[in-house]
Protein backbone atom coordinates (compact mmCIF):
# COMPACT_ATOMS: atom_id res chain seq x y z
CA UNK A 1 0.00 0.00 0.00
CA UNK A 2 1.29 3.43 -0.87
CA UNK A 3 2.67 5.46 2.02
CA UNK A 4 2.85 2.44 4.34
CA UNK A 5 6.01 0.70 5.45
CA UNK A 6 6.56 -2.64 7.10
CA UNK A 7 9.24 -2.40 9.72
CA UNK A 8 10.82 -5.24 11.65
CA UNK A 9 11.71 -4.18 15.15
CA UNK A 10 13.19 -6.64 17.68
CA UNK A 11 11.73 -9.51 15.78
CA UNK A 12 8.22 -7.99 15.79
CA UNK A 13 6.72 -6.67 12.59
CA UNK A 14 5.40 -3.09 12.89
CA UNK A 15 2.78 -1.85 10.51
CA UNK A 16 2.90 1.95 10.55
CA UNK A 17 2.31 4.60 7.92
CA UNK A 18 4.65 7.47 7.15
CA UNK A 19 2.03 9.96 8.31
CA UNK A 20 1.96 8.26 11.72
CA UNK A 21 5.75 8.36 11.93
CA UNK A 22 5.71 12.03 11.01
CA UNK A 23 3.08 12.72 13.69
CA UNK A 24 5.10 10.87 16.39
CA UNK A 25 8.23 12.85 15.41
CA UNK A 26 6.27 16.12 15.48
CA UNK A 27 4.83 15.28 18.92
CA UNK A 28 8.27 14.30 20.19
CA UNK A 29 9.86 17.57 19.07
CA UNK A 30 6.95 19.56 20.52
CA UNK A 31 7.31 17.93 23.94
CA UNK A 32 11.08 18.43 23.82
CA UNK A 33 10.64 22.16 23.19
CA UNK A 34 8.02 22.37 25.95
CA UNK A 35 10.35 20.53 28.33
CA UNK A 36 13.25 22.89 27.57
CA UNK A 37 11.00 25.93 28.06
CA UNK A 38 9.75 24.62 31.42
CA UNK A 39 13.32 23.87 32.50
CA UNK A 40 14.45 27.33 31.41
CA UNK A 41 11.87 29.03 33.61
CA UNK A 42 11.83 26.57 36.48
CA UNK A 43 15.56 26.03 36.98
CA UNK A 44 16.31 29.45 38.55
CA UNK A 45 13.46 28.92 41.03
CA UNK A 46 14.67 25.44 41.89
CA UNK A 47 18.21 26.74 42.25
CA UNK A 48 17.08 29.49 44.67
CA UNK A 49 15.16 26.90 46.72
CA UNK A 50 18.30 24.73 46.67
CA UNK A 51 20.43 27.66 47.87
CA UNK A 52 17.97 28.43 50.65
CA UNK A 53 18.37 24.93 52.04
CA UNK A 54 22.18 24.99 52.17
CA UNK A 55 24.58 26.20 54.79
CA UNK A 56 26.39 29.38 53.88
CA UNK A 57 29.60 27.45 53.34
CA UNK A 58 28.04 25.06 50.84
CA UNK A 59 26.96 27.87 48.52
CA UNK A 60 30.28 28.11 46.76
CA UNK A 61 31.41 24.52 47.12
CA UNK A 62 28.53 22.47 45.77
CA UNK A 63 26.75 22.47 42.43
CA UNK A 64 24.19 19.84 43.48
CA UNK A 65 20.55 20.80 43.09
CA UNK A 66 19.64 18.64 46.09
CA UNK A 67 21.88 19.71 49.01
CA UNK A 68 23.62 16.82 50.77
CA UNK A 69 23.00 18.38 54.21
CA UNK A 70 19.80 20.41 53.92
CA UNK A 71 19.28 23.03 56.60
CA UNK A 72 16.45 25.39 57.55
CA UNK A 73 18.80 27.74 59.42
CA UNK A 74 18.46 30.44 56.76
CA UNK A 75 14.69 30.44 57.10
CA UNK A 76 14.94 30.80 60.90
CA UNK A 77 17.47 33.60 60.52
CA UNK A 78 15.43 35.65 58.00
CA UNK A 79 12.21 35.19 59.94
CA UNK A 80 13.98 36.48 63.08
CA UNK A 81 15.48 39.43 61.25
CA UNK A 82 12.25 41.29 60.39
CA UNK A 83 11.14 39.55 57.20
CA UNK A 84 7.56 39.22 58.43
CA UNK A 85 7.38 42.94 59.13
CA UNK A 86 8.70 43.68 55.62
CA UNK A 87 6.16 41.31 54.14
CA UNK A 88 3.40 43.03 56.08
CA UNK A 89 4.60 46.38 54.72
CA UNK A 90 4.73 44.98 51.20
CA UNK A 91 1.28 43.46 51.50
CA UNK A 92 -0.08 46.79 52.76
CA UNK A 93 1.54 48.72 49.91
CA UNK A 94 0.57 46.15 47.25
CA UNK A 95 -3.06 45.77 48.32
CA UNK A 96 -3.67 49.50 48.60
CA UNK A 97 -1.84 50.20 45.34
CA UNK A 98 -3.87 47.60 43.45
CA UNK A 99 -7.08 48.88 45.05
CA UNK A 100 -6.21 52.44 44.10
CA UNK A 101 -5.26 51.48 40.56
CA UNK A 102 -8.55 49.62 40.09
CA UNK A 103 -10.60 52.42 41.63
CA UNK A 104 -9.13 54.90 39.18
CA UNK A 105 -8.80 52.79 36.04
CA UNK A 106 -12.12 50.91 36.08
CA UNK A 107 -14.38 53.97 35.69
CA UNK A 108 -11.77 55.65 33.47
CA UNK A 109 -11.57 52.64 31.15
CA UNK A 110 -15.38 52.47 31.07
CA UNK A 111 -15.48 56.16 30.12
CA UNK A 112 -12.86 55.86 27.41
CA UNK A 113 -14.55 52.77 26.03
CA UNK A 114 -18.12 54.07 26.02
CA UNK A 115 -18.09 57.85 25.63
CA UNK A 116 -17.12 59.79 22.55
CA UNK A 117 -15.90 63.21 23.61
CA UNK A 118 -13.62 65.89 22.26
CA UNK A 119 -9.96 65.05 22.87
CA UNK A 120 -10.64 61.41 23.73
CA UNK A 121 -8.11 60.06 21.28
CA UNK A 122 -5.45 62.60 22.25
CA UNK A 123 -5.93 61.81 25.92
CA UNK A 124 -5.58 58.09 25.28
CA UNK A 125 -2.40 58.68 23.30
CA UNK A 126 -1.06 60.97 26.03
CA UNK A 127 -1.68 58.25 28.60
CA UNK A 128 0.12 55.76 26.36
CA UNK A 129 2.98 58.21 25.89
CA UNK A 130 3.44 58.47 29.65
CA UNK A 131 3.68 54.69 29.84
CA UNK A 132 6.66 54.79 27.50
CA UNK A 133 8.78 56.79 29.96
CA UNK A 134 10.85 54.50 32.13
CA UNK A 135 10.24 55.09 35.86
CA UNK A 136 14.01 55.08 36.42
CA UNK A 137 14.34 58.18 34.24
CA UNK A 138 11.93 60.14 36.41
CA UNK A 139 12.79 58.70 39.81
CA UNK A 140 14.92 61.67 40.93
CA UNK A 141 12.43 64.42 39.96
CA UNK A 142 9.70 62.32 41.50
CA UNK A 143 11.69 62.05 44.71
CA UNK A 144 12.07 65.82 44.74
CA UNK A 145 8.33 66.35 44.30
CA UNK A 146 7.46 63.77 46.93
CA UNK A 147 9.92 65.31 49.39
CA UNK A 148 8.37 68.74 48.83
CA UNK A 149 4.96 67.22 49.54
CA UNK A 150 6.30 65.48 52.63
CA UNK A 151 5.47 62.06 51.22
CA UNK A 152 8.91 60.43 51.30
CA UNK A 153 9.70 57.93 54.04
CA UNK A 154 6.03 56.90 54.09
CA UNK A 155 4.08 54.07 52.58
CA UNK A 156 1.38 56.53 51.50
CA UNK A 157 3.80 58.28 49.16
CA UNK A 158 4.97 55.00 47.69
CA UNK A 159 1.38 53.82 47.17
CA UNK A 160 0.48 57.07 45.39
CA UNK A 161 3.55 56.68 43.19
CA UNK A 162 2.68 53.11 42.27
CA UNK A 163 -0.89 54.11 41.47
CA UNK A 164 0.26 56.99 39.29
CA UNK A 165 2.87 54.97 37.47
CA UNK A 166 0.66 51.96 36.79
CA UNK A 167 -2.49 53.77 35.69
CA UNK A 168 -1.57 54.11 31.98
CA UNK A 169 -0.90 50.44 31.31
CA UNK A 170 -3.83 49.28 33.44
CA UNK A 171 -6.16 51.78 31.78
CA UNK A 172 -5.31 50.57 28.28
CA UNK A 173 -5.59 46.95 29.29
CA UNK A 174 -8.95 47.41 30.97
CA UNK A 175 -10.32 49.59 28.19
CA UNK A 176 -9.62 46.70 25.82
CA UNK A 177 -11.83 44.45 27.96
CA UNK A 178 -14.64 46.98 28.11
CA UNK A 179 -14.46 47.25 24.32
CA UNK A 180 -15.27 43.54 24.01
CA UNK A 181 -18.55 43.89 25.92
CA UNK A 182 -21.49 44.71 23.62
CA UNK A 183 -22.86 48.22 24.11
CA UNK A 184 -26.37 46.74 24.01
CA UNK A 185 -25.80 45.72 27.63
CA UNK A 186 -25.38 49.40 28.53
CA UNK A 187 -28.50 50.27 26.56
CA UNK A 188 -30.53 47.54 28.23
CA UNK A 189 -29.30 48.72 31.64
CA UNK A 190 -30.27 52.32 30.89
CA UNK A 191 -33.74 51.26 29.82
CA UNK A 192 -33.93 49.19 33.01
CA UNK A 193 -33.35 52.39 34.96
CA UNK A 194 -29.60 52.46 35.61
CA UNK A 195 -27.57 55.64 35.44
CA UNK A 196 -24.01 55.40 34.10
CA UNK A 197 -22.42 54.46 37.41
CA UNK A 198 -25.13 51.91 38.17
CA UNK A 199 -24.62 50.43 34.70
CA UNK A 200 -20.94 50.00 35.54
CA UNK A 201 -21.60 48.68 39.03
CA UNK A 202 -24.49 46.27 38.39
CA UNK A 203 -24.13 45.26 34.76
CA UNK A 204 -20.61 45.66 33.37
CA UNK A 205 -18.38 44.96 36.35
CA UNK A 206 -19.00 41.20 36.37
CA UNK A 207 -18.46 40.63 32.64
CA UNK A 208 -15.24 42.65 32.82
CA UNK A 209 -13.98 40.74 35.87
CA UNK A 210 -11.37 38.71 33.93
CA UNK A 211 -9.80 41.99 32.84
CA UNK A 212 -9.88 43.33 36.39
CA UNK A 213 -8.22 40.11 37.59
CA UNK A 214 -5.45 40.50 35.04
CA UNK A 215 -4.85 44.11 36.10
CA UNK A 216 -4.94 43.12 39.78
CA UNK A 217 -2.49 40.23 39.42
CA UNK A 218 -0.13 42.13 37.18
CA UNK A 219 0.03 45.11 39.51
CA UNK A 220 0.19 43.01 42.66
CA UNK A 221 3.21 41.12 41.34
CA UNK A 222 4.81 44.34 40.17
CA UNK A 223 4.38 46.24 43.42
CA UNK A 224 5.28 43.17 45.47
CA UNK A 225 8.69 42.92 43.84
CA UNK A 226 9.41 46.56 42.96
CA UNK A 227 12.74 47.81 44.26
CA UNK A 228 13.94 51.09 42.72
CA UNK A 229 11.03 53.35 43.75
CA UNK A 230 10.71 51.70 47.15
CA UNK A 231 14.42 52.05 47.85
CA UNK A 232 14.45 55.71 46.74
CA UNK A 233 11.39 56.72 48.73
CA UNK A 234 11.73 54.61 51.85
CA UNK A 235 15.41 53.90 52.55
CA UNK A 236 16.09 57.04 54.64
CA UNK A 237 13.18 56.06 56.92
CA UNK A 238 14.80 53.03 58.48
CA UNK A 239 14.25 49.28 58.27
CA UNK A 240 10.80 49.41 59.85
CA UNK A 241 9.42 50.92 56.65
CA UNK A 242 11.15 48.50 54.30
CA UNK A 243 9.28 46.44 51.77
CA UNK A 244 10.29 42.87 50.94
CA UNK A 245 12.61 43.70 48.07
CA UNK A 246 14.47 46.20 50.23
CA UNK A 247 14.54 43.73 53.11
CA UNK A 248 16.24 41.13 50.94
CA UNK A 249 18.82 43.75 50.02
CA UNK A 250 19.69 44.03 53.72
CA UNK A 251 21.32 40.59 53.47
CA UNK A 252 23.73 41.96 50.90
CA UNK A 253 25.70 44.27 53.15
CA UNK A 254 29.17 45.72 53.23
CA UNK A 255 30.60 42.77 55.15
CA UNK A 256 29.21 39.89 53.17
CA UNK A 257 26.52 38.70 50.79
CA UNK A 258 24.43 36.14 52.67
CA UNK A 259 23.24 34.10 49.70
CA UNK A 260 21.34 31.49 51.69
CA UNK A 261 19.41 34.19 53.58
CA UNK A 262 18.68 36.06 50.36
CA UNK A 263 17.41 32.79 48.83
CA UNK A 264 15.29 31.90 51.87
CA UNK A 265 13.74 35.38 51.98
CA UNK A 266 13.05 35.16 48.25
CA UNK A 267 11.36 31.77 48.61
CA UNK A 268 9.14 33.03 51.46
CA UNK A 269 8.43 36.17 49.45
CA UNK A 270 7.18 34.17 46.49
CA UNK A 271 4.53 32.34 48.53
CA UNK A 272 1.90 35.13 48.74
CA UNK A 273 2.19 35.78 45.01
CA UNK A 274 1.65 32.11 44.25
CA UNK A 275 -1.40 32.05 46.54
CA UNK A 276 -2.75 35.24 44.95
CA UNK A 277 -2.18 33.89 41.45
CA UNK A 278 -3.77 30.50 42.17
CA UNK A 279 -6.82 32.26 43.68
CA UNK A 280 -7.34 34.43 40.61
CA UNK A 281 -5.84 32.09 38.01
CA UNK A 282 -9.22 31.10 36.59
CA UNK A 283 -10.02 34.73 35.78
CA UNK A 284 -6.44 35.46 34.74
CA UNK A 285 -6.25 32.75 32.07
CA UNK A 286 -9.73 33.52 30.79
CA UNK A 287 -8.80 37.20 30.75
CA UNK A 288 -5.67 36.61 28.71
CA UNK A 289 -7.38 34.37 26.17
CA UNK A 290 -10.38 36.74 25.88
CA UNK A 291 -7.97 39.56 25.21
CA UNK A 292 -6.19 37.48 22.59
CA UNK A 293 -9.31 36.42 20.77
CA UNK A 294 -11.48 39.52 21.00
CA UNK A 295 -8.70 42.10 20.91
Amino acid sequence: MAGRTDTTFGGARLDVSWSQIRRYCYDGVTYLVYGLAVLFFLFPVLWVISLSLRTEGAVYTSLELLPSNPSLDSYREVLDSGLLRWMRNTLFVAVLSVTGILLVTTPAAYGFSRFRFRGRRSLLLAVLGFQMISPIVIVLPLYDIMRTLGLTESHTGLILLYIGLQIPFSLWLLKGYFDTIPTELDKAARIDGCNRLQTLRYVLLRPVMPGIAVVAIFNFVLTWSEFVMAYTMLSPGGEDLYTLSMGIYVFDNQLATQWTNIAAAAVIGIVPIVIFFVALQRYFVRGLTDGAVKG
Binding site: P182, E184, L185, K187, A188, A189, R190, I191, D192, G193, V203, R206, P207
Partner: peptide, 17 residues
Amino acid sequence: PEERDIAMVFQNYALYP
Protein backbone atom coordinates in the same frame (compact mmCIF):
# COMPACT_ATOMS: atom_id res chain seq x y z
CA PRO B 1 -35.07 56.14 29.00
CA GLU B 2 -36.59 54.73 32.18
CA GLU B 3 -38.96 57.70 32.42
CA ARG B 4 -40.46 57.13 28.96
CA ASP B 5 -42.45 54.04 29.90
CA ILE B 6 -40.93 52.01 27.10
CA ALA B 7 -39.23 48.61 26.95
CA MET B 8 -36.77 47.43 24.35
CA VAL B 9 -35.70 44.10 22.90
CA PHE B 10 -32.30 43.93 21.24
CA GLN B 11 -30.94 41.91 18.34
CA ASN B 12 -28.27 40.18 20.44
CA TYR B 13 -30.66 39.74 23.40
CA ALA B 14 -28.48 41.94 25.69
CA LEU B 15 -29.14 39.66 28.65
CA TYR B 16 -26.94 40.35 31.65
CA PRO B 17 -24.55 37.38 31.50
